[in-house]
Simulated assay, not measured.
Amino acid sequence: MSAKYVNLTAENIANEHLCCIIRTRTLHPGIENKRKWLMERINEGHVFRKLDEKATVFIEYAPLETAWVPIVGNNYYYVYCLWVLGNYKGQGHSRALMEYCLADAKEKGKSGICMLGSKKQKAWLSDQSFAKRFGFEVVDTTSNGYELLALSLDGTMPKFAPSAQKEEIENKDLTIYYDMQCPYIHQNIESIQQFCEKNDIPISLIQVNTLEQAKELPCVFNNYAVFYNGHFETVNLLDANYLKRILKK
């Protein structure tokens, strides 16, 4: 396959397409929030590699030590997203992007690569069946079915932080933890907030602003996490129908 890819850098990030399918001719708050968040991560070794076109074809990963997730391990990469959509599917882009990540890990002497999965595939998580075909295996689990997948290069394994296994908080209101890593989060939070105001549903929105805060979250997290009645529900971004199902529990 002959395709040109580009990595975002401090020099090109202001002008590069960020691969989401939000279509707008004007500045979009979610996209610009993502751009700002990425700009602050690049010097930490965060990698955003994309097809050099206006397309949803990219991989995003970072050193586990600076990845905003409650996962611990030494010298791993953490894959936030591997996404290929539309007419670009079936052209080998997913394999090419994952092979780049693996080659990068080997070149830098990393112990391996890991990512968040689930016993039942979640809409907002990368395709774990593809990852398993690539050699990833389940190395840790939570009580409600989330899994940590890892491809080890030296026999060591990462694991969920102890806090991620709690899956309980004191607040009984609908509670959403989120950061600005995904361009869709801004509009999703606005939409859910409007729905809750209209229907008199108490809600607590907690923005995760630091690495330390992310590493100590009381649940698994890829940029978004939902609690209700004090119990962890999902990492999927909510829509009105999904929220109604949660509120009926």
Rank of each mutant, 00 (worst) to 15 (best):
R35S: 08
T156C: 11
N43Q: 14
I201T: 12
E233H: 12
R95C: 07
H28L: 01
G145I: 00
E137L: 05
C19E: 06
S126T: 14
L116K: 03
C114V: 01
V6E: 13
F136C: 05
S204F: 11
S143K: 08
S143P: 00
V139Y: 09
S2P: 04
R35Y: 09
P158G: 09
A164C: 08
F221L: 11
F130G: 06
A131N: 09
L247F: 09
E53G: 12
V69D: 07
K110I: 01
A131V: 01
K4C: 11
C81T: 01
K4L: 13
Y177F: 15
D140C: 07
Y78L: 03
L205G: 06
F221Y: 10
E147K: 05
N74D: 15
N15T: 15
N209C: 12
F58K: 02
P158Y: 05
V47D: 08
F195S: 07
G112I: 06
L174T: 01
E167L: 09
A240C: 07
N236S: 13
F160T: 04
N229S: 13
I13S: 14
M39P: 00
Q165L: 13
D104S: 14
S126V: 10
Y224A: 09
Y76F: 15
G145Q: 03
G73L: 12
N241M: 04
S94P: 00
P63S: 14
E32C: 08
F136Q: 04
L153Y: 12
E65R: 08
K4A: 14
F136M: 15
N12R: 15
D239Y: 13
L8N: 07
S126Y: 03
K108D: 04
L243S: 08
K4Q: 11
S118Q: 02
A10H: 13
L27G: 04
K106G: 10
G112D: 03
K89L: 13
V138S: 13
E168W: 07
I21P: 00
A96P: 02
I71C: 09
E107C: 07
I189S: 05
G92E: 06
E44D: 15
A103I: 04
I185K: 02
E137F: 05
A225R: 06
L217I: 13
C219F: 05
N87V: 14
N144H: 03
N241D: 07
